[in-house]
Design a protein around this nucleic acid. Structure first.
Lengths: 204, 204
DNA sequence: ACCTGAACACCGTTCAAGT
DNA sequence: ACCTGAACACCGTTCAAGT
């Protein structure tokens, strides 16, 4: 009934938690989100039980790891909303999220599953991603740059499918999929066949 | 140096192999390609060692399971090549392969990885899928129905990405992704926004 | 309050012994 | 020639004992 008194953690516990997150990022980047947790604990200099003390399961670890990064992504999305070209804004948003969702092999699946799963640590983030997509869509549609029936869920699906494609095909293939699909959705394509390259050159 | 004399297998061995394949199909449909092999062996009424005697690893089992089914799919693709509308033919091909690649959870990844991996039991099948896609593309392009820069690899990527989407999102979402992307590629869209429904109604 | 690491469960894979 | 199932390896997860 009463608020649980939020105590500040012991200094060594805080340090362990931080190192676990840092090493998890390194290992997940190399081996994907299915990498053995034992290796992460060892690299962080703690026993496996300590890892489980801080993160009850793998999803919680991945979730904590992404929470900060997600905030930066959402801020970028907000900025794009006030951008001059709603069409370019939507294109940049999609490539930014694909980049984000391809950080670790297997992450796209965690995100895609997270949208429909209330229990997922990333559920709120996935909903927010879809909402930002919806806002960018509304704005592009108002400018007459987008066909009428495209939804935020469509964009969310495309972004995750493209991130998945990165893990299983040659590097350019995912960008080609995005470019082709976006060309189908955008009614005022900036210049056919170059959607991806345009964005890339402005996003070094 | 000399040809290995191809002996016909013992009757019980043949029966065990067949039952293993049949049960693997059932289990993979329910639990995906990562389902425990022990369960498949038990259902087939044999010990786990027997399964490994017939199939050296999981990929070999999945590969054998798909070889027959793939043949039917390729035959269908050949038929479509002589079809009256190259545009409709390409659309139907894509939906047929998505259906095929979504039969088991995790199958899309096996196929996508198989295209670039010579060692994969499904490598030849993946190459063939891409080739048929290339032929259908050439034919649609000759009819002026397709933009110039679309490749068989693009179609292969789309089909697998859509199959993956089936495993991780609401059922319609994968079809919407396909429809939106195909609309971007087809220059003579039969009627915008209804690409998926059209095909579906003719493919009950 | 937090950490340790042995212990248990589960599953992939191998192989010596059987028929 | 083929089958059996115990044995080993690997990894996720828990928890009693320590500090």
């Amino acid at each position: 009934m009463t608020e649980p008194p939020p105590r500040r953690p012991r200094a060594d516990a805080r340090r362990n938690r931080d190192r676990l997150l840092a090493e998890a990022d390194v290992v997940f980047r190399q081996e994907g989100t299915d990498a053995p947790l034992e290796g992460i604990a060892r690299r962080a200099g703690v026993a496996i039980g300590t890892l489980y003390g801080h993160f009850p399961n793998r999803r919680a670890l991945v979730g904590s790891l992404l929470r900060e990064r997600n905030q930066a992504l959402f801020d970028h999305g907000q900025e794009l909303l006030t951008s001059s070209s709603p069409q370019q804004a939507l294109i940049r948003w999609v490539y930014a999220v694909v980049e984000h969702a391809a950080a670790y092999q297997g992450l796209a699946a965690v995100l895609a599953d997270g949208l429909g799963d209330q229990e997922s640590e990333l559920h709120a983030s996935c909903v927010h991603m879809t909402e930002i997509s919806d806002q960018l869509i509304a704005s592009a549609r108002a400018a007459g740059a987008l066909r009428q029936d495209v939804t935020g869920a469509d964009i969310f699906a495309l972004m995750n499918a493209a991130a998945w494609t990165r893990d299983h095909m040659p590097p350019e293939q995912a960008d080609r999929l995005v470019a082709l699909t976006m060309d189908g959705m955008l009614t005022l394509a900036p210049s056919r066949n170059t959607t991806a390259k345009q964005d890339r050159s402005q996003n070094p």
